[in-house]
């Protein structure tokens, strides 16, 4: 038996240092700060109506990025995100309406309640995989809506609840269009910062490993149950905070729009079109889809969903891996043809 190690076979690639230089590691943070400042600068150029539209784009950047933590990084098809959005909205409404707590305290409580609820239901739910996880989380969201609808004494039932925002009854004064623009911008920036931190941390590696192969990840020493539950709890907490801010912005909240499944679906579509499992993808996806949707709604009111649906179909067929992932692969392999791309998943 020879005593030398197996010789390395010849390679064409050069050996690269294990860790990227500091300027490459800090580039995303610089971009995030620049983007946030750009958002503040943009505000001076917008009318009130435009401010609302862009504020909604920020909201979807936050929702899509939060969804991406469990749906993109971890690969669990979370079709119940809106349940936590609605939960956050109603916790805030209840706290402000019944308990007269300040909005800022309600915002924190909304995040906590959404997170705790996620940690509670996450343990059994995250044992499910694929479509089963998708349906079970959808069921939780629909169930929450029904509970809110059928507790009229606390929630006002189908008649909704109006948060007091003016006069002596108001625990916190309404922030105004300018104020909400900044609030949603900061929430979006904070959620993206969380995603960026997770993506580059040990947790990010653990989530990606769980996504790729749970059995192998467990054999590598990753506590898969804890990893998944933490990601789910974090995503739900952030979603609850977004729901809370949205509730205060629209003041009058009702069960159906607060638990509207199409909010989840939009977030999923934004992530998938932008590029799941990347930090940049959900941001680009949210901006593109929300902008397109608004534009179509204004210009083609009747055919709005038809055109949007058709665009989604075309995008998914041409770019099944999402824009950012496609671009990354294409630059690496120098193959930019979209038709090649279609062949990947064709039967």
């Amino acid at each position: 038996m020879s005593t030398v190690d197996a010789p390395a076979p010849p390679r064409t690639t050069t050996v690269v240092p294990a860790v990227a230089p500091w300027w490459r590691r800090s580039a995303p943070w610089v971009l995030l700060a620049a983007g946030t400042l750009g958002g503040i600068a943009l505000q001076t150029q917008l009318y009130t109506a435009q401010e609302r539209v862009v504020g909604t784009v920020f909201m979807f950047v936050a929702l899509a990025t939060a969804w991406n933590l469990i749906g993109g990084f971890t690969g669990y098809p979370w079709f119940g995100q809106v349940g936590f959005f609605g939960l956050g909205a109603y916790v805030t409404a209840l706290c402000m309406y019944h308990l007269h707590l300040s909005f800022w305290l309600s915002l924190v409580l909304s995040g906590l309640v959404a997170g705790l609820f996620a940690a509670f239901v996450g343990v059994p739910l995250l044992r499910l995989k694929g479509h089963y996880f998708a349906i079970a989380t959808l069921g939780v969201a629909e169930g929450l809506r029904e509970v809110v609808l059928n507790l009229p004494r606390a929630t006002g039932g189908g008649g909704g609840l109006t948060i007091p925002t003016l006069g002596p009854d108001a625990p916190t004064r309404w922030l105004g269009n300018d104020g909400f623009y900044i609030l949603f911008l900061l929430i979006a920036a904070a959620v993206v910062a969380v995603a960026l931190a997770v993506s580059r941390s040990r947790a990010g590696y653990a989530l990606r490993a769980v996504n790729q192969d749970e059995e192998a990840a467990a054999a590598m020493g990753i506590n898969t149950t804890r990893t998944k539950t933490l990601a789910f709890t974090l995503a739900a907490t952030l979603t609850g905070v977004v729901g809370s801010a949205q509730a205060f912005r629209i003041q009058a909240i009702y069960p159906d729009p607060s638990f509207d499944t199409s909010i989840t679906e939009l977030a999923v579509i934004m992530v998938m079109i932008g590029g799941a499992g990347t930090v940049l993808g959900p941001i680009l996806g949210a901006i593109a889809v929300q902008y397109m949707s608004e534009w179509l709604r204004e210009n083609y009111t009747n055919a709005h969903t038809f055109i949007l649906g058709a665009l989604i179909i075309v995008t998914v067929v041409l770019l099944p891996q999402g824009f950012v992932n496609y671009l990354g692969d294409a630059v690496k392999t120098r193959r930019f043809s979209l038709l090649d791309n279609v062949r990947r998943y064709r039967l």
Partner: peptide
């Protein structure tokens, strides 16, 4: 059939887009 081998997200979103088109 163009995306039937893709991860389930893709077919979910495709059929979701289809539903939007048909419903409209």
């Amino acid at each position: 059939n163009l995306v039937v081998n893709a991860p389930i997200f893709i077919t979910l979103i495709l059929t979701f887009g289809l539903e939007m088109v048909l419903e409209n």
